[in-house]
């Protein structure tokens, strides 16, 4: 089981009040880093057809910033101010991966998708070319089901009280109907509210680096986890990865590492004996570059095989659909 349900268990007995509280909180805005949004758009526009996927991130409580002398305008809201931050996403290469045709959640598949990631689910997205920029029938059902799911809710961060938040965020990405238009993508971010059964459009705050964003960036904690490689990737540890001429160097690199090339030895670069060590270091760098080249080649080859397999799958699908 995933940990979201575990985090929920302690408050299980307060279900009715919890449920209403869960929904009533309106997000102030949704944040996303420029690169995450860019790669989301890239993913949608490079796909052959329509795609969808999951959005990960967190929901945090922020202290409202009210600089006012007038006490009457400083409204003390009962509701905490919440900001959602999208940090990453997962996309399949088709639609309807974790829900049925009529928009019901396929909980086992969803759990399976979530089990490989440490990120918290906060919503999902749908990318479809040349369609209206409003949620479709199925998207409404899926979003509504996610927004009312207790199982997939996550804890609000830095909140004084224990608050949970359902994955009620929905991104819609489309392209304009006319090809001649100046813009090529359209997107809209929503928070689904179960109480009113409606999609509330939310400002999508794109956080970038740079002087203009300094104040902005202070409040934003970027999240770029190192890719998790839970499986033994063949080639990373065996000799076949680096071919021919690389093999020898690879061994040497290994030897170098085995000889525990200590940072301390870098000191030898200074002074009279430097010349000997320069050669040794250059060799080390060369070996590293060779290893990287080998890795790049491996990635290229496997990408080509993935593409080949995808094309093959597409042909099979077309065959089933009666094109031949």
């Amino acid at each position: 089981m995933n940990r979201y349900s575990i985090s929920f268990l302690p408050v299980n007995s307060f279900l009715p009040s919890f449920h209403s509280a869960m929904d009533a909180i309106s997000l102030q805005k949704i944040q996303i880093s420029g690169p995450t949004l860019a790669s989301l758009i890239q993913r949608v526009s490079s796909a052959a057809g329509d795609v969808d996927g999951l959005l990960f991130g967190r929901v945090s409580h922020i202290t409202p910033f009210t600089l006012s002398d007038d006490s009457s305008t400083a409204t003390t809201s009962d509701q905490p101010t919440l900001v959602a931050t999208v940090t990453s996403f997962f996309s399949s290469n088709s639609t309807s991966t974790f829900y049925s045709a009529s928009g019901q959640l396929d909980t086992p598949t969803l759990n399976n998708l979530l089990s490989t990631s440490d990120d918290r689910l906060i919503g999902w997205f749908s990318g479809r070319r040349k369609t209206q920029l409003r949620p479709s029938m199925r998207e409404s059902s899926v979003t509504s089901a996610l927004a009312s799911s207790i199982q997939f809710s996550s804890q609000v961060q830095s909140s004084p009280e224990s608050l949970t938040f359902p994955p009620c965020i929905f991104f819609l990405l489309t392209t304009p109907f006319q090809d001649q238009l100046i813009h090529t993508h359209e997107y809209k971010a929503f928070q689904f509210r179960s109480s009113t059964d409606s999609f509330d459009p939310k400002t999508l705050d794109v956080v970038n680096l740079g002087p203009a964003f300094r104040g902005h960036y202070g409040n934003f904690t970027p999240n770029s986890p190192f890719p998790d490689l839970p499986f033994q990737v063949k080639g990373l540890n065996c000799e076949s990865m680096v071919e021919d001429e690389g093999e020898k160097e690879n061994q040497k690199f290994g030897t170098l590492c085995d000889q525990s090339f200590k940072i301390g030895r870098l000191k030898s670069l200074m002074g009279s004996e430097a010349a000997n060590y320069t050669a040794e270091l250059e060799e080390l760098y060369n070996n590293m570059i060779n290893k990287l080249n080998g890795l790049a080649k491996l990635v290229e080859q496997s990408s080509a095989r993935v593409l080949e397999q995808e094309n093959h799958n597409m042909k099979l699908r077309y065959k089933v659909a009666g094109f031949e």
Partner: peptide, 25 residues
């Protein structure tokens, strides 16, 4: 979805009918 013609279609209703949720789960 032409890439997956076996999948069921989806429908986008008119702009005035955003509240029309026929199959809400």
């Amino acid at each position: 979805n032409a890439q997956f013609p076996l999948l069921a279609p989806d429908i986008v209703f008119g702009p005035e009918d955003e509240k029309f949720r026929p199959y809400n789960a």
